[in-house]
């Protein structure tokens, strides 16, 4: 039975791998595909701490932005190849996330969220107002730029296709890690903490330590995504990376798809990104911000009518239909004789 669950994802993965090979995909469409995958990746990264563990961070951009800046700086100033740079940046960001997270873990969850939001705002102000940080020139409000090159060893490609495969690989990696987590002791502990910290502690769960782990893993992956993004466009824009919109959008994608599930963030990201894209393409240019309005409305509708997100809702519906089908079969089997109780 378990094997059946894997057939569909594997087929989808194969299709994704073969897609650019079979079809010729133009530059702009390739960018779109890469962006979708990257958002799916970020939504899945956030899911580890926000969805599974209940650490509802509103400041995901902190880690994304740090990952981007660190990777870029390591590349430009230390000549460190981004393949390694991404990992180093992710590790450093992970450690940073624990250091800033530690004082906030004991707070009531709502204040944890607000604290992450405050930190995001601080990062944005710092990176848009200061040209150099710790002696390193990071570009200030103009952002961190470097010239795009053609050096595969340094993650610089002239065509977009390699980037597509890199981000696809990253997405697969984060999904595998998420899947492994949910089936392990750590994953159960994460979800217990999310449901009820006090009860979890009484069952021997080291709540603080596990929160730090969840935060580290999530920040690690988010930062790697940031590093990738930096190399992809050769540019880090602080007001975008540390802006509210990116963080909230990633969160919305995860939540609308289904925050406590494996595929929720993926589906949610695909859905929201597609809707955003369509609206931006077909709406008249005078209607500026229509996409944001729609995203906000989607979030409101989703929270109100589909509390767990899309995937749990669909799973529930499927189960309800299966149960009513079972009931109907039972009724048929007990025949028209009547009088037989169910």
């Amino acid at each position: 039975m378990k094997q059946k669950k894997w057939i569909l994802p594997v087929i989808v993965l194969l299709a994704a791998i073969l897609l650019p090979v079979v079809f010729h995909i133009g530059l702009s469409n390739m960018s779109i595909l890469i962006s979708v995958l990257l958002y799916m990746y970020w939504a899945s990264s956030w899911n580890i701490m926000g969805g599974y563990t209940g650490l509802f961070s509103l400041g995901n951009g902190i880690y994304i932005g740090l990952g981007a800046y660190l990777t870029g700086c390591l590349f430009v100033y230390a000549n460190l190849t981004p393949y390694a740079g991404m990992l180093v940046a992710a590790l450093l960001t992970g450690v940073f996330s624990i250091i800033i997270g530690y004082p906030t873990f004991r707070l009531q969850s709502i204040f944890y969220s607000l604290a992450t939001f405050a930190l995001l705002g601080m990062m944005k102000i710092i990176f848009t107002n200061f040209q150099t940080i710790f002696g390193v020139n990071v570009g200030g409000s103009n952002g961190f730029k470097f010239s795009p090159g053609n050096d595969p060893l340094n993650m610089q490609f002239s065509s977009k296709m390699p980037y597509y495969y890199i981000v696809l690989g990253m997405l697969v990696a984060v999904l595998l890690v998420s899947h492994w987590i949910t089936r392990s002791k750590r994953g159960f502990y994460f979800r217990a903490i999310s449901a009820n910290e006090g009860a979890a502690a009484s069952l021997g769960v080291s709540v603080l330590s596990l929160k730090m782990q969840a935060q580290f893993i999530s920040a690690f992956f988010s930062a790697m995504g940031g590093g990738f993004y930096c190399m992809f466009i050769s540019y880090v824009d602080p007001s975008k990376m540390f802006g509210v919109e990116l963080s909230i959008n990633v969160m919305i994608m995860c939540v609308v798809g289904g925050a406590n599930t494996l595929w929720g963030p993926v589906i949610g990201a695909g859905l929201i990104y597609t809707i955003n894209r369509i609206v931006t393409m077909y709406a008249p240019s005078s209607l500026n911000g229509l996409a944001t309005l729609i995203s906000g409305l989607i979030l409101m509708i989703c929270v109100f009518f589909l509390p767990g997100g899309l995937i749990p809702f669909l799973a529930d519906e499927r189960e309800k239909r299966a149960m009513s089908r079972r009931k109907a079969t039972l009724q048929k089997q007990s025949g028209g004789g009547g009088g037989i109780h169910e």
Partner: peptide, 8 residues
Amino acid sequence: ICQPFSNL
């Protein structure tokens, strides 16, 4: 007051 993990 019972404290079930309602997500499990």
